[in-house]
Amino acid sequence: MALFDYRSEKFTHDRFTGAAVENCTFLDCDFSGSDLTETRFIDCQFYDHESQIGCNFSHATLKDASFRTCDLTMNNLRNINALGIEIRECRAQGADFRGASFMNRISSRSWFCSAYIIKNNLSYTNFSKVILEKCELWENRWNGANVLGATFCGSDLSGGEFSSFDWQTANFTQCDLTNSALGELDVRSTNLEGAKLDADQVSELMGRLGIIVVN
Rank of each mutant, 00 (worst) to 15 (best):
Q45F: 02
T151K: 12
T190G: 04
R208N: 12
R109G: 14
A115H: 07
S34L: 06
F165L: 03
Y47F: 15
R7A: 10
I80V: 15
E22M: 11
A95M: 02
G160E: 01
I80K: 03
S51H: 11
C29E: 03
M206S: 11
G54T: 04
S32W: 08
K10W: 00
W138N: 13
K63L: 11
A92T: 00
L177N: 01
N191A: 10
D156R: 09
E38F: 12
A65C: 12
F172S: 04
V130K: 02
T73A: 09
M206I: 04
A60P: 01
F102R: 03
N126H: 09
L3P: 00
D198K: 06
N215K: 13
E133G: 05
C29L: 09
I117E: 04
N179D: 12
L3G: 00
F162N: 03
D5V: 15
A60F: 01
E133D: 09
H59V: 08
G84H: 06
T73N: 11
V147G: 00
S101R: 13
V21A: 05
T190I: 01
N191P: 02
S203D: 10
R88S: 13
E86N: 13
G144A: 04
G144F: 00
F4D: 12
F57P: 02
G159R: 08
S123K: 07
S66F: 04
T190D: 04
E133S: 11
N146W: 03
D186S: 12
L83V: 11
L185P: 03
D176F: 08
M1K: 10
A181I: 09
G94A: 04
G210T: 02
I131M: 11
S123D: 10
F67A: 01
C153I: 07
S101V: 05
E50W: 06
Q201T: 08
V21T: 05
M74N: 14
Q168H: 04
G159L: 05
A65F: 06
S8P: 00
R15F: 12
D176Q: 06
N120R: 08
G194L: 04
S203A: 15
G84W: 09
F16V: 02
F102M: 07
G160V: 01
F11K: 05
C153V: 08
K129R: 15
T12R: 14
R91M: 14
